[in-house]
């Protein structure tokens, strides 16, 4: 089956990203397809490579990057939500005249159309959040 995942909450504050990660992993292990993981609301904070959790804790951002690389996942951060919260890639940095970027490896910034498209093209859109 073709899944799409939406994550609406940031890392550590909320379990949504953890649950989505384990769900995505399980779905892939069962041989299903995950056509997109879309990060919205505070969920965009899952896509900053500057996250530095204590060493004895899980690194939620790296975990997504690694899963993304292993399975060639399309990890998409919503541009409008990202701009509000300071999640920036090189293009956004230049466009908005910022002095840095912080997008984590394997993530890309794109529009809400990617979420709608995921709803249309997947057989199940699974939303994680409150």
């Amino acid at each position: 089956m073709k899944f799409a995942i939406q994550i609406n909450e940031g890392p550590y504050q909320h379990q949504a990203s953890d649950s989505a990660y384990y769900f995505t992993k399980a779905v892939l292990e069962k041989g299903h397809e995950v056509m997109r993981v879309f990060f919205y609301h505070d969920g965009v904070n899952n896509g900053t490579r500057l996250t530095t959790p204590p060493q004895d804790d899980r690194n939620i951002v790296n975990r997504w990057s690694e899963l993304g690389e292993q399975h060639n996942l399309d990890l998409v951060v919503c541009v409008a939500a990202a701009q509000r919260r300071g999640i920036v890639d090189e293009g956004e940095m230049q466009r908005n005249g910022k002095d840095a970027h912080n997008i984590a490896p394997g993530f890309r910034i794109s529009g809400l159309g990617q979420l709608i498209e995921a709803g249309i093209q997947s057989e199940r859109l699974v939303v994680f959040g409150d």
Partner: peptide, 18 residues
């Protein structure tokens, strides 16, 4: 911010003629 950002999804989504 949920209400505001969800309204943004609806407005963008409207272009997809669902």
């Amino acid at each position: 911010v949920y209400a505001l950002e969800s309204l943004e999804v609806v407005l963008i989504g409207a272009a997809f003629d669902q």
